[in-house]
């Protein structure tokens, strides 16, 4: 057993871990931080993505001992003072999730993407999150969400840059009266 000292979502923990323990297993099993999930065993899916000292890591690829003296933020610590992070809000607003299993990792990776590139194009978002797999959404609404959050975080109400694609709200306009008409 090895002693580690790690700060997770604002709380300091002092724990004994087996040297082979992965950070994700430490988070889930010892700290009960089950918001971070495991989706694969080859570091392909990114479902376990958290921030370690401010940068996104796949916590299945980091040993718990490597987080010693580090600061970890998980999806559970992303909202501040009871208000959602702009990325969380944008995923909700743009329907960037369905089953939600990839979502914690996807949100954490996307936040890190905007740290490096605050105004990504559609292509840059797609390439920026390619380490995170989603099986439900086909990614299109995730891309919208990341661009929406980017706009909010830059402080403007500017439309997402680059792709010129319509947002869901505009799509709704077309579909909703259509449906109402068909029903009445």
């Amino acid at each position: 057993m090895t002693r580690i000292n790690v700060r997770v979502d604002g709380v300091t923990y002092d724990d004994d871990v087996e040297p082979r323990t992965l950070l994700v297993h430490y988070l889930r099993e010892q700290l009960g931080k089950v918001g971070t999930v495991v989706g694969c065993d080859t570091s392909n899916c990114g479902a376990c993505t958290v921030h370690l000292d401010g940068a996104a890591v796949k916590s299945c690829t980091v040993l718990a001992v490597q987080a010693d003296d580090g600061e970890v933020t998980t999806i559970e610590g992303l909202a501040q003072d009871g208000s959602l992070h702009p990325m969380q809000k944008a995923f909700h607003e743009m329907h960037g999730l369905q089953c939600g299993f990839c979502t914690p990792g996807m949100i954490m990776a996307s936040v890190d993407l905007l740290r490096e590139n605050p105004d990504p194009s559609e292509t840059e978002v797609r390439e920026g999150i390619e380490g995170n797999l989603c099986r439900c959404t086909g990614y299109q609404n995730i891309v919208r969400a990341v661009q929406q959050a980017a706009g909010e975080m830059r402080g403007g109400a500017r439309a997402p840059s680059g792709d010129g694609h319509v947002s869901p709200a505009e799509v709704d306009t077309a579909a909703a009266p259509h449906v109402a008409g068909a029903q009445s």
């Binding site: 931080k33 495991v38 999730l97 914690p104 909703a176 009266p177 029903q183």
Partner: peptide, 28 residues
């Protein structure tokens, strides 16, 4: 307003975007 046809944002999302849901493997 009629609800059918409306682009309601999902009720399910609140627990999923905050990591506060129950997957089977979370059970202890």
């Amino acid at each position: 307003e009629r609800e059918i046809g409306k682009a309601r944002r999902r009720k399910e999302d609140a627990r999923l975007i905050t990591g506060r849901t129950t997957w089977t493997d979370n059970m202890v």
